[in-house]
Design a protein around this nucleic acid. Sequence first.
DNA 1: GTCTATACGTGGATAGAC
DNA 2: GTCTATCCACGTATAGAC
Lengths: 205, 205
Amino acid sequence: MATVQFSTKDKILGAAEELFAAHGFAGTSLRQVTSRADVNIAAVNYHFGSKENLVNEVFRRRMDQMSAQRSAQLKRALAEHPGEIEPIIAAFVEPALDMAGGRAGSGAFVRVIARAYVEKNDALRKFLSDQYGHVPREFAAALATCLPALGKAELYGRLDFLAGALTYAMADFGLIKRPPGTTEHAHRTRIADELIRFAAAGFRA
Amino acid sequence: MATVQFSTKDKILGAAEELFAAHGFAGTSLRQVTSRADVNIAAVNYHFGSKENLVNEVFRRRMDQMSAQRSAQLKRALAEHPGEIEPIIAAFVEPALDMAGGRAGSGAFVRVIARAYVEKNDALRKFLSDQYGHVPREFAAALATCLPALGKAELYGRLDFLAGALTYAMADFGLIKRPPGTTEHAHRTRIADELIRFAAAGFRA
DNA sequence: GTCTATACGTGGATAGAC
DNA sequence: GTCTATCCACGTATAGAC
């Protein structure tokens, strides 16, 4: 059984992911990253070109994963529960929940995703739209068959409301605190269930 | 008629607000701020202690304004439309809309607030919570009388969903594009109306 | 191709003179 | 209250070793 060899690039990505999750992007220096990864400070610029590009790469890995989960779960929802709204919304919400709860710095990776929108970087937003734009389109199409009375603009608008509520809740921005005696995962699952109910009613309005 | 005298402190605040709105606070250096304000670089640390504290002060002015508008509009809603949900939600949503559309860099202010959360600026988050936490509590109390079946936890959770959807929509994060031929303000007003309908249905779920 | 040592310019912050 | 001078950490760039 061969020992796994981590390349310098992978070590940087792993260390950056952990530190970004714990302290945010502005709060993490490249010197912290390279120190934790046990590589030279110059390696990050050699492999990634800039800090911004490193952030993008860390972000892209998670986004690929979440988008794939969303598409797969949507496909299952349409096959197993045709005509129902809740399973479609669940397919949008739950993969984000998995990502948020999957590690110690809870909610951090939703923050990582949210950053892409906060940055007013038009090139990055175009990249995201080109790369992942098909996913919201799939959801809009799926919801349109359940809600024929809604126009395309209304549908996209409400998907935005859902995405905003989801991001905010999963990133721990809000008022809700986890009750003592419940696990982090149970708490997030409960929030997700409530969001699905809330949004389903909103879409039907 | 006396010429208005701007103190060094006010000149810094004014310059900082413009630059933060345009480039975000990570993208704005204190040297840019003090250069535009035509004051010495050390003045900002003398008057505000740190860049972080300056950020707090700049946003406190706007947040005071928005929170006061929300409270006032909530009071009117309860007096004029007792027992109705939509006017309560409107009292939460519409002051944010005013703030988002009130200046050239549309959505810039909301975006900067969102950035504070994304960047995991815990000090700013605590500051916002301490200073303005009473406002969501007022809204929760108002909604509780309309929706006696909802528990306190559910109520706070749904207010978080509303706040997230609102922030996301006002900061232009989402899919919706302003249709050609409509003004920025008309577009935001339309989004606000749709959010109020969406959220009212969600609260009733 | 990879990686390291090192240097450059800019950032926020501070001490002390006035 | 305000300014000059200075400090140290930061992101980045480059020359050269392996």
